[in-house]
Amino acid sequence: MNKKWMIGTLALSLGLVSAGSGALAATPAAGDTAIKTVAASAPGKEGPATINNLTTKSIIPLLVHAKKLYTYASGSGNFLGAEKFDYNGLEYRYLSSDLGTRQQLMNYIKRGFTHNAAAFYVQTQFLEMKGRMAQVNADVGNHLQFDKATAVMVSKTATTAVFELSVPQESGQGENAAVVVKLKKVSGYWRIDMSPDTLF
């Protein structure tokens, strides 16, 4: 058996390779804990970005992984006190250098989402200013605990799937939220096929 092929397969099974990008997950610089958490998420032997057998159990780690991607991107990346500017009456903040270009941001989001979902998210939630990506300076996201969600498969084909989840609130108060998640298989791995801001 080809040695390179074996190493590549091992890297995929351990979640060290991001499906679609082909880049190895590097150890982030000191202080980049959010990146480290996302890159190191590996439930069992299979990383959440390399799920090829989608079930009511395996969808949960994929959603937790995807929420970490969304939280990091929607929080402008790996630094606080981001550089800010005003545009059309709103205050914007630039994203950190690891998400600084449209391509970097797209590649990052595609670790958990389809190309179309990532493209819609980038197009509608970010602004490209002087070659750098920026976003409105505001907190976003919901307070649902996707790691404690339960899932029911609504439909599934070889390349598409729909699940309905019951997701508890972080406060523990109120009824669980009913969340519908659409997925698509991309290059052999499942990706969420809806914009991150509509899900999280």
Rank of each mutant, 00 (worst) to 15 (best):
N137C: 04
K67Q: 09
L63S: 05
T37D: 07
L63Q: 01
A19W: 11
F200I: 05
P48Q: 04
L144T: 02
S58F: 11
F120H: 07
F126Q: 01
S171K: 06
E170G: 09
S76D: 11
L95I: 15
G75N: 08
N78M: 11
T124S: 15
K148N: 07
Q173G: 15
V136Y: 00
A73E: 07
P48C: 06
M153L: 15
Y87L: 14
V38C: 01
D86P: 03
S187W: 01
V167C: 07
K36A: 09
R93V: 15
P28W: 00
V17H: 04
S166W: 09
F200W: 11
E128G: 00
T159C: 09
K3H: 01
Y72M: 08
T198L: 14
F163H: 09
K67F: 01
T9Q: 13
D197W: 03
A29Q: 07
P196K: 02
K3I: 00
D86C: 06
M1L: 13
T157S: 15
L105M: 08
T37I: 01
L144E: 01
Y108C: 03
K156W: 08
Y94M: 02
F146V: 08
L95E: 06
G174C: 13
E91D: 15
A138M: 05
S195N: 08
A66R: 00
T101V: 05
Q135W: 00
D197F: 00
W5Y: 14
R93F: 03
T150E: 08
